[in-house]
Amino acid sequence: MSLVYAGVCSHAPGITGRANLVKDKALREEFYAAFDVQRQEIEASGAEALVVVAAEHFANFFMNNMPAYCVGMADYYEGPIEDPEWLQIERRKIPGNADLSLRLTREIMNTVDVAYAEEWKFDHGIIVPLNFLTPRFDMPVVPVNINCQGPPLTPLPRAWAFGEALRRACDAVPERIAIVGTGGISHWPATPDSGKINEEWDRDFLDRLMRNDKAALLDYTDEQTYADAGQGGFEIRTFIAIAAAARVPGTLQFYTADLPIFAVGCTVARFDLDAAA
C-alpha cells in the first residue's frame, strides 16, 4: 500500500545543458511545465522518498564491474558528476536514506540478484529529473540503475521482473514511496545523428506503456530497437520496469519530438495508481 506515485520522464543532459539553444522556446516551457506538474503530483502524493530508476552513463559503473541492476544505499549522494557548467546544474549533495535502501534491497533480493552501492555520483540520468521534480533537493532519493549502456544488457522480461520486485519492496516498507523511471525512447544521443527522433516508434511505445500491455512492451528485440530507435532506445528498460511496478494503465501528460537540441523525444507520464485503489 505504500507506493503512492509512479511515473516516467526524460533525462537527457541537453534538457538543462543546452536549454539556451532551443529554437521553440514556448515548447521548451511547455515541457518544463509538464515536469512541474509531475513535481506537484509527487508532492501531493505525500511521498516521503523518491526512487529514481535510471540508466546511467559511466558515472559509477564501467565494464570492469558492470551490474545489470544496482540500488544506491547511502545517506547522501553527490552530483552532477558532469561539469556543472556543461549541465547547467550546480554540484551538490542530495539526501538519501540508507536504511530505507537496505530494506528495499533485501526485499528485492528475494527474486532479483540486485547489486548495491554505498557510494554513488549522480549523472544527468538522475539529476536532470531531480532538478525539476525536487528542485530544492530536499526529498530523500533512492537511486536505482539498469545497465542500458554496456552490452550485454538485461533482457526486457528481466526488467519487468525487476519492476515487480521493486513494487513488492515498496509495499513492504511503511514509508510512502514515489518511483520515477527516467530515460529516453528512440534517440541517437552523442552520435552525429544526435537530435534524430523516431516519433512514430515513440508514440507506439508510449501507447503500449500507457496501456501497461506487458506482452506488447516485452515484444521488442534489441536488434529491432537499435535499428528503429537507436542505441538510446535501449533505455526503454527503465520505463518498462516502472510499468511493471505500477501494474495499472497510465496517462501521457507530455510528449514532443520537436525539441531536437535535447536529443530525445521529451516525455512526462504517470501511471494512474489512484484509479486502481
Binding site: 541517437w188 552525429p192 537507436g230 535501449f234 531536437p260 536529443a263
Partner: peptide, 17 residues
C-alpha cells in the same frame, strides 16, 4: 560499440545551430 553513425551524417539540429 553501439554508437555508430547509422544515418547519413546529416545534422538534426541545424536550426538551433
Amino acid at each position: 560499440g553501439i554508437y555508430a553513425m547509422t544515418g547519413g551524417g546529416d545534422s538534426f539540429t541545424v536550426e538551433e545551430n
